[in-house]
Amino acid sequence: MYGPQIDPANIRDQDLDEAAYQGERMLAWLDTAQEELDKIVGTGEAADGQVRATVDPNGRVLDVAYGPRALRLGSHKLAEETLAAVGAACADAERQTHDLMREALPGYDPAAASAELERLLGDDWR
């Protein structure tokens, strides 16, 4: 996980200073990175490229396009493939966001940060 591993029972001034420095660094990065984050567009495909989707960094669908053979899939299969393409596009946008964060914040691990947040919040946050 990003940041120091602080023992709550034994917090030192040095630990607090390091946490404050990292927090300031993250806020500074967020100020400058918002433009880069806003440019992220995730793309995904399904049904052998017959269904293509694009999403913004928040997972909002920007576009869904169908190839000429997509309608041969039938309505239920087309719906499944559309959801698969959107899911792949969301995963691509998330990967791009994490890449930007790792570049700006060396040592940051999005998966570990997410797991730690879930651990701290428990099941009540969902």
Rank of each mutant, 00 (worst) to 15 (best):
M1R: 08
M1D: 03
Y2S: 02
P4K: 14
Q5N: 12
I6D: 01
I6V: 11
I6N: 04
I6W: 04
D7C: 02
D7M: 02
D7Q: 05
D7P: 07
P8T: 03
R12P: 00
R12S: 15
R12Y: 00
D13L: 13
D13H: 06
Q14H: 05
Q14K: 12
D15K: 00
D15W: 07
E18T: 14
E18W: 01
A19V: 12
A19S: 08
A20Q: 11
A20C: 08
Y21L: 15
Y21V: 10
Y21M: 11
E24L: 11
E24G: 13
R25M: 14
M26E: 11
A28Y: 01
L30H: 07
L30E: 11
E35A: 15
E36I: 04
K39M: 12
V41N: 06
V41F: 02
T43F: 06
G44D: 03
E45S: 11
E45F: 06
E45R: 13
A46I: 07
A46Y: 05
A47E: 05
D48M: 14
D48T: 15
G49P: 09
Q50H: 11
R52T: 13
A53N: 05
V55F: 09
V55G: 06
N58D: 13
G59M: 08
L62F: 01
L62A: 04
D63L: 08
Y66L: 11
G67L: 13
P68V: 12
P68E: 15
R69E: 14
A70H: 04
L71S: 10
R72G: 15
R72W: 09
G74P: 02
S75L: 10
H76Q: 14
H76I: 09
K77D: 08
K77P: 00
A79M: 09
A79E: 14
A79F: 06
E80A: 11
E80K: 12
T82R: 00
T82Y: 02
T82E: 03
L83C: 09
A84N: 10
V86A: 00
V86C: 03
A89R: 01
C90F: 03
C90T: 13
C90I: 14
D92R: 04
E94P: 07
E94N: 10
E94Q: 15
R95F: 00
Q96W: 03
T97E: 08
H98Q: 15
D99I: 04
D99H: 08
M101W: 04
M101L: 13
M101E: 12
R102I: 08
R102Q: 15
E103S: 12
A104G: 07
A104M: 07
L105S: 02
P106K: 01
G107R: 00
G107L: 02
Y108S: 08
D109F: 01
A112K: 05
S114Q: 14
E118K: 13
E118F: 09
E118C: 04
G122P: 00
G122S: 01
R126T: 10
